[in-house]
């Protein structure tokens, strides 16, 4: 780095009035009072009362959530007959950068495919919600839903198994078709 590349910024000199602080202090007090007035009298605050109001209910231009591109908790899709769509190809767990998908494959009981997942666990605490699994899946079996408020009291609870992932599908399929 050359000396000419360095830009040295001097702090701005205070004017005579600024050196007495008071005029600037009064201006600042005016600004904050304006905000207080707006909140208390005109009710113009920027608060979302979360459990009662949700961002997905708001239009995007008013601070709402753009659901189209939101990546929430995973779900395992089902086909028309209610069977799990997954063919246990391990593409998602290979693609996963966080190594949070654990699949145990087994012989498929159905004639149209060779394998199906006997176990399908996703550690939602390890997951970084990047959506790579969704991209990698050849049969569109794994998808990220719009659900973001998942909670658990233990770490074990946050490892979602196949049953739970299928349940999320049942809960979200109405709002987010495949």
């Amino acid at each position: 780095m050359k000396d000419s590349d360095v830009i040295i910024l001097e702090e701005p000199r205070l004017s005579r009035a600024d050196q007495f602080y008071l005029p600037q202090v009064l201006i600042g007090l005016g600004t904050t009072m304006k905000h207080m007035f707006n909140v208390v009298v005109r009710d113009k605050h920027r608060v979302l009362q979360y459990p009662e109001e949700r961002r997905e209910d708001l239009p995007v231009e008013k601070g709402g959530m753009l659901l189209k591109s939101y990546r929430g908790v995973h779900r395992l899709n089902k086909d028309e007959e209610g069977r799990v769509k997954c063919v246990a190809c391990f593409m998602c767990s290979t693609a996963c950068p966080a190594r949070c998908i654990h699949i145990e494959a087994a012989e498929s009981p159905w004639p149209d495919r060779e394998k199906y997942p006997a176990k399908f666990d996703i550690d939602e605490l390890r997951c970084i919600y990047c959506g790579m699994c969704e991209e990698a899946c050849p049969v569109d079996a794994i998808e990220l839903s719009h659900v973001y408020d998942i909670v658990g009291l233990t770490r074990q609870e946050m490892i979602f198994d196949k049953a739970k992932l299928l349940k999320i599908f049942d809960e979200t399929v109405k709002n987010e078709p495949m």
Partner: peptide, 10 residues
């Protein structure tokens, strides 16, 4: 409360 009013909160 004052803090939040100043910061546009409730």
């Amino acid at each position: 409360k004052v803090a939040s009013w100043v910061q546009d909160r409730l």
